[in-house]
Simulated assay, not measured.
Amino acid sequence: MPGLAGVIWIVVVIGAAVLVHRYVVFPTVVRSESMRPSLEPGDVLLAGRVRSRTRLRRGEILVYRDAQTSERRIRRMIGLPGDRVQIADDGVVSVNGDAVFEPYARRSGGFRGSFRVPADRFFVLSDQRGGPHDTRTWRESFVPVGEVVGVARVRLLPWPIVATGVLAR
C-alpha cells in the first residue's frame, strides 16, 4: 500500500498545481522589446490572475489578450476607465491633469495626443515609447477590460531573480 499513498500524493500535488495555475497565478514569457529596460525578451514572469478589475492600479504591468491576434501582450497600465490621458510633445504623460512619474519609461518626443478612456477599457503603453510596440500608434489604443488576464508580480527568470522594483506600481 505505500505505492498507493505515493500515487494519491502525486495526484493531490498535480491537482493543486492545476488549480493554482487556473485560479491564482500563471507564468508568462516576455516576447517583445516593448517593455525594455524594465523587462527583457525571454524574461519569465509570474502573473496573478485578475479577479476584480476594479482593483487594478495605474503603473501595474498587465497581461492581456490582444483582441485581434489572441496573443498575450504585456504593457503598463496608464489610464483607468473614465480617465483623460494626455501625452505632451516631450513625451510626458498626464492623467486627469496630473503629470505621471514614470522612471521606467524611455520617452520619445514628437508624438502628442489626448485620450479619453472609455468606461469598459484601459489605456496601456509600452515602457519603450515611440517604437512599433507602442499602443499610441495602434488603431485601437485601449484594452477591453474583459481581455485583462493578469498582473505581473514577480520576474522568475533569468536566474538569479533580480529585485528591480519595476513590477510594482
Rank of each mutant, 00 (worst) to 15 (best):
S126R: 00
D89L: 05
G109F: 05
L125P: 01
Y104F: 11
R121N: 02
V92I: 10
W138N: 11
H133K: 02
G130V: 08
A99W: 08
G130S: 12
S94E: 11
V93R: 00
D120V: 11
R136M: 11
T137N: 13
G109E: 02
T135H: 01
F101S: 07
D134E: 14
N96H: 14
V95E: 11
G130A: 10
R107C: 09
Q128L: 09
D120G: 13
P118H: 07
A119N: 15
R107I: 12
V92G: 07
G97S: 14
D120S: 15
G131E: 12
D120R: 11
V92K: 06
R136W: 04
F115H: 08
R136F: 07
P132G: 12
D134Q: 12
V100I: 00
G131Y: 13
L125N: 04
W138F: 10
Q86D: 15
R121A: 00
P132M: 09
S108P: 13
T135G: 09
V124W: 02
G109Q: 01
V93Q: 06
V85C: 07
R84H: 03
D89P: 03
G110Y: 08
W138Y: 11
E102N: 07
A119W: 14
R121Q: 09
F123G: 00
R106G: 03
R116L: 07
V92S: 09
D127M: 04
R136T: 05
D98Y: 04
W138L: 01
D98E: 13
V95P: 02
R136S: 08
G97R: 15
S126V: 03
N96I: 13
R112N: 15
A88K: 01
R136G: 10
G91H: 07
Q128D: 12
P103I: 05
S126M: 05
P103A: 12
R84F: 01
R106V: 10
T137P: 06
G110A: 08
P103T: 02
I87K: 00
T137G: 15
R112T: 14
F111E: 06
G110C: 09
D120C: 12
G131F: 11
S108C: 13
D98S: 10
N96L: 13
T135P: 04
T137C: 09
R106A: 05
F115T: 02
V93G: 07
D90E: 06
D120K: 13
E102S: 03
A105F: 05
L125A: 05
R129C: 02
G130M: 07
F115N: 04
V124D: 06
G113F: 08
F111T: 08
P103F: 11
V93A: 08
A99I: 10
F123T: 09
T135Y: 00
G91I: 04
Q128N: 14
G130F: 07
F115P: 01
A99V: 10
N96C: 10
Q128S: 15
Q128F: 10
R106E: 02
S108M: 14
R84P: 01
V93L: 05
H133W: 06
Y104I: 02
P132E: 14
R129P: 03
A99K: 13
A119F: 15
A88G: 10
R107E: 09
V85L: 00
V100A: 00
P103Y: 12
F122I: 03
A99L: 06
V93D: 05
V117D: 03
P132W: 00
A105C: 11
R136Q: 12
